[in-house]
Design a protein around this nucleic acid. Structure first.
Lengths: 246, 246
DNA sequence: CGACCCTTTGAAAGGAATCAACTTATGTGG
DNA sequence: CCACATAAGTTGATTCCTTTCAAAGGGTCG
């Protein structure tokens, strides 16, 4: 299940790589990162990381696997705001918002490293660069939410599914886990529906369509993208919001 | 048009009040805020503040009026991610994201105060509290986006309109501009549709329904909420995401 | 082997979009 | 001051897409 092939390393290394993605961190910042204490845990699929209403005292860094950020509607539907992969810190926001307004849980088996808020606050105090880099990560999350508003509000079902596939592929490529445009997407069709605000029936029909044009293959949650350009075009995808390069 | 009744004052005062909304800032931080140079401008309705693709060198603080954060889809539809009111700083994110992935423009005549990035970076360096408060503001924006995903993805038309009304009322009450549950909403029905991912026809029909039950009155963009509890209930509104109190 | 979860497909129902026409304000210039 | 133009609001009829309901098929694991 856990695929440690590429973006492996100690939690500090994973975090350093992530934060120096756009600009190199100064050596002083890197050495600060090396001194952090991480509490690494392996969590089974569908384990809660933090629940709506709770107050966090630590943040987590995903080392392996996929997690979901979600909220339940009054009607009992689950809206997944965002899916997180290795290298992401899904609850960074808890640093400055006391009460969680949504929940986090694993979608697959995950390896996760916890860091206390105290330590992160210390890092931010000691390094302007780390402060900026972490803030920036939360801003990119916000950009992903904005794009999700459009995905869910404006795109037809097939485009929504295509858009999710493109986004996940790009984010996984960034950590070297989808080089050849194929990877384990970990999501059931119901869960894709939870992300895209679609019923699982509609997701299924969208997949059928994408398959019928030989654009993707999806077998046992293993996704292969056969025609990238067509997929991007159907998704009406524009990658600015991911802020991949500066 | 410009209603300077309550949250008036110099830009520094408006900003101080905003940032000490949840926790008092220490005197040292307050004095830093007093020393900022603001460039105050009055912008006509529908004026661009910053465009997608551009790089900002300053942030703005809204003193009066309403602005929109939006993006155009490939189909030419306008999705308004968020509406901003007095006290908001809609482009704080430009501090750490080079290229804007969306645009900002006024929806009504606005009074806006610009501050250079240089000055804000300076503030964040000099005051941990200001750094945290500004970061926090961007995190609340993100929470608003998350809620918008659910609003647009899961709620029927009437609930969406109701939800927008409740959100705007609460945010305006926070700055003392909707005390008696009535205020100028500044949005046309088309613009409400742009926020809610609805056609203006559907917005119109939703309004008709809300009016028919005497829940709201809306005349010349002036909104009066007649039955708050019913509106909240129809909206399926839960205010945690606004992080009003800690 | 059977229970369970996920996927697949068909048929019917429902909600919003679209198309279209008409009304109501607002504003401008003759 | 009114004629006309323009933007915004209202309403009905139809179409389209997605949901819901229903049932069958496939895979996995105790």
């Amino acid at each position: 299940m856990i695929n440690g092939s590429v973006s492996t390393g100690t939690p500090s290394e994973v975090l350093s790589r992530r934060l120096s993605r756009r600009w190199d961190l100064p050596p002083s910042a890197l050495s600060l990162l090396r001194d952090i204490d991480f509490d690494v845990q392996t969590l089974p699929s569908r384990t809660s990381i933090i629940e709506e209403g709770q107050r966090a005292t630590a943040c987590c860094l995903i080392l392996d696997g996929v997690t979901s950020r979600f909220q339940l509607t009054q009607g009992g539907e689950r809206q997944i705001h965002e899916v997180h992969v290795a290298g992401d810190m899904p609850d960074l926001l808890s640093l400055h918002l006391r009460k969680m307004d949504h929940s986090l849980r694993t979608l697959s088996e995950c390896r996760v490293a916890f860091v206390t808020h105290e330590q992160i606050w210390g890092l931010c105090r000691q390094s302007e660069e780390i402060n900026a880099a972490l803030w920036r990560e939360t801003l990119i999350d916000a950009a992903i939410f904005r794009t999700s508003i459009i995905r869910v509000g404006r795109l037809p079902a097939v485009s929504r599914v295509a858009h999710l596939f493109v986004e996940l592929t790009l984010r996984l490529q960034l950590i070297g886990r989808a080089e050849d445009n194929h990877f384990n997407i970990e999501l059931s069709q119901q869960e894709m529906g939870d992300v895209l605000a679609l019923s699982f029936v509609s997701v299924n029909r969208a997949l059928k369509e994408l398959r019928s044009y030989s654009i993707v293959r999806l077998i046992n949650r293993y996704l292969t993208i056969l025609d990238w350009d067509k997929l991007v075009s159907i998704a009406q995808f524009e990658d600015t919001y991911l802020h991949l390069k500066e």
